[in-house]
Structures are given as C-alpha cells and as structure tokens.
Write a protein that binds this DNA or RNA. Structure first.
Lengths: 205, 205
DNA sequence: GTCTATATTCAGATAGAC
DNA sequence: GTCTATCTGAATATAGAC
C-alpha cells in the first residue's frame, strides 16, 4: 500500500468517527485533520471537498449495512419461515448500525444534517436499502406469515425508524447489546407488546 | 396586544416554520428575518440570541405535544384497557407531530442538529415526555395487558422512534393521514405484524 | 505530500442613527 | 422598534513554498 493510500484511509476513518459521534455539522475539515495530526489544507490533496469526503464515508457505511443484512439472509436454511427472515435482517441491521463501527453509524447520525446535494447523492442508496425491507415484508405477507391488513410502507418505516432511532440513545457498554436491541425490536414488531389474545382489528387504509 | 408582542409572535412562528422544514443548521437569523420582512439585526431587539429564540420555539412544541397526549389520556373512560391508553396516546402523538403545525414538528426535525447547550436545556423536557410513555408501559405490564418479558426501555424507544422517524418521510397530503399513521404504529407495536399464533418466546434480557 | 499563509463567504451579534 | 453599517469568528477552499 502506498503512503497516499494509507493517509487517505486515515482521513476516511477519522471522518467516519467524527460523523458517527458529532454529526455532519460539527465535523469540520480542521477537526478531521487535527485528529490525525495534519493541517486542514492537506486534506484537499486527497479529497476535492468536504462533501466529497463525507459522501465516500457514507457510501462505505451503506455498503457495510447492506452487506451485513444480505449475508444474514443468505445464511438462512431453505424453507425458513418469513418471520425468521425478518428476524435475522433486523438483528443484522442492529449489529451493523449499533455495534459495527463508525461507518454505518455515520449514516444514521448524520442523515438529518446533510446539505441537499449530499441527500440527493444518497437517495438511490437509501431507496435500495429500503427495497430490502419492502421485499421482506411483501414476501412475509404473501407467504401468509404476516398479516395483510397493515400498510406496508408504514410497516417498513416503523422498523427502520425504530432501528435508526436506537442510535440516538444506544450506548455501547450498556447492559443491552446491539443484537439484544435487534431481538427486542423484532419481538415488538412481529409479535407485539400485547400479552392477551390477538386483537387485530382490520385498519381501514 | 402590543405591537412588540405581535412582532415577537411573528418571529416565533417564522422560526418554528423554518425549524420544522429545514432544521436547525439551515435556519439562520437572516432567513427568519427575511421571511417576515425584517432586517436580521431587528430580531435581536426581541431575543437575545438565535439559541434563545430556538429554545423558546422548542419549549412551545414540547408543551403542545405533551398537552395533546395528556388530553387524550384524560378523556379515556374509567376502567379502560391499558392497551387502549397506549393507543390514544400514540395517535395523539402522531397527530401532534405530523399534523399539528410547526412547533411540535420543529422539535423532531431539529433534534439531531442542536448544539450541546440547547440539548441540555431540553433534556429535562424530553425526559418528562419519556416518562409519560414509561408509565403507560409500566401500567400496561402491571395490569397484565402487556407482556412482561420485554425490556421496557427498548419498548418505549421503539414507540417514540417509530413516531419521530415518521416525520422524515411523512408528507402532508399523503393518502395516509396522521391519525392513520398512529393507528398503524399502534397495531404494529401492540399486536404485531405476525398473522399466525403468538410466538412470544421469552427474550433473555 | 504536507506545509504556511491567505482568500472568501457567511454566520451570529453589536453600535448607533432615526 | 427597526434600520444601516460593521465587527468577529469560524469554516471551506486555494496558492505557492518546501
């Protein structure tokens, strides 16, 4: 590996770390440079702009999360219940975002702060990721494992919302691990909080 | 109403609108002033700083959301099922945040962008709001209406997460109304997505 | 490749006239 | 109360030496 590549990787790592902890706005080129002992101007030898650098970090994070979920789904045995597919996907997402290092966390933590250019740059990636969940829910409904009377878009966004929101309060080193958070989210989303018999009144939407 | 009060109210409204749509970072004193036909310097006659102004808007939004949920709970008939309490609270929250004007939306939209000072200023308000949900879940578990094997903090944050995340994608004028979003979230959180018999394996946490 | 120095822009905020 | 004019500080980014 050339020296240029090594430095470049250090910059990406430092950016991911900063984005994941303090978000986009508070991540400055100067602070990134300082954290790895460089001058801010030197960053521009490796990346054309702050947003180009941030964009690459976010791309890596998206790929890592997508790959983690894909890998978990690929390992399922044949003929699995579709609820089990949803379960391993949710847990894989939780592990990637909560326990999986700075890159996936950078996405979730910074998402609400990105300037319009970066948002549109990543719209496709986010839509593709949403597709994974859309298909899981569709398959679940069609196989009869999931109820069919709920709006699937809302269902998808409740799942993603619960998982993404978790990062706002989740603290590594908690008594609850990332995969346990995933397990709880799955239990709530699929089986519900209710202790009694099912009360699945159809919803008129 | 004095002229000073009128202007002050206009500034608050314009700030709430801006925070709700573009978030904290993109909300500048200049843009607020422009939207109501003033010079930016004039804002400082009414408010000591941007963060003081933003803080007041966020306070109003929190109060509106808390009041909406409290009112919905107060209207419940005696001897109601605790699931029904959770239902009306979730729907009231959805209506307040998604359909209830700029102030509550300002909170959710700006939350992830606030500087540390403002975060700690509002920590108490958020904790109080979380308390409402903690009590609803505790009451539900103790009355036997809700299962007792799930971590209650995770349950609370899944609910709040799902509701707060909704604002990132919810579009007024959608085919789904705010209260319908609330109804779906309730159905998912309490009864679950599963079509089949309950599979509530205890979770080891 | 990395440095020092600096240009540019824009934000929050203040001073003082009217 | 609101204005014009201005200060200050910070952030992105560039120029050019080494």
């Amino acid at each position: 590996m050339k020296k240029s590549d090594r430095t470049r990787q250090d910059i990406l790592d430092a950016t991911a770390s900063s984005l994941a902890t303090v978000g986009y706005t508070a991540t400055t080129v100067k602070s990134i440079a300082e954290s790895i002992g460089m001058q801010d101007a030197s960053i521009y030898y490796h990346f054309a702009s702050k947003d180009e650098l941030v964009g690459q970090v976010l791309d890596i994070g998206t790929s890592l999360a997508v790959d983690a979920v894909d890998r978990a789904l690929a390992e399922l045995p044949d003929g699995h219940d579709q609820r089990e597919a949803l379960r391993v996907a949710i847990i894989a997402h939780a592990e990637a975002v909560l326990g999986g290092g700075d890159y996936p966390r950078a996405n979730v933590r910074s998402f609400g702060q990105l300037p319009p250019d970066l948002v549109s740059r990543h719209r496709k990636g986010h839509r593709d990721y949403g597709q994974i969940w859309t298909r899981l829910i569709d398959d679940g409904v069609e196989s009869g494992a999931l109820r069919s009377d709920l709006n699937r878009s809302v269902a998808r966004l409740v799942i993603i919302g619960a998982l993404c929101w978790a990062i706002e309060w989740f603290d590594a080193g908690e008594t609850v691990s990332a995969s346990e958070v995933g397990e709880h989210v799955f239990q709530m989303v699929v089986n519900g909080l209710s202790a009694g018999q099912l009360q699945q009144n159809a919803v008129s939407v």
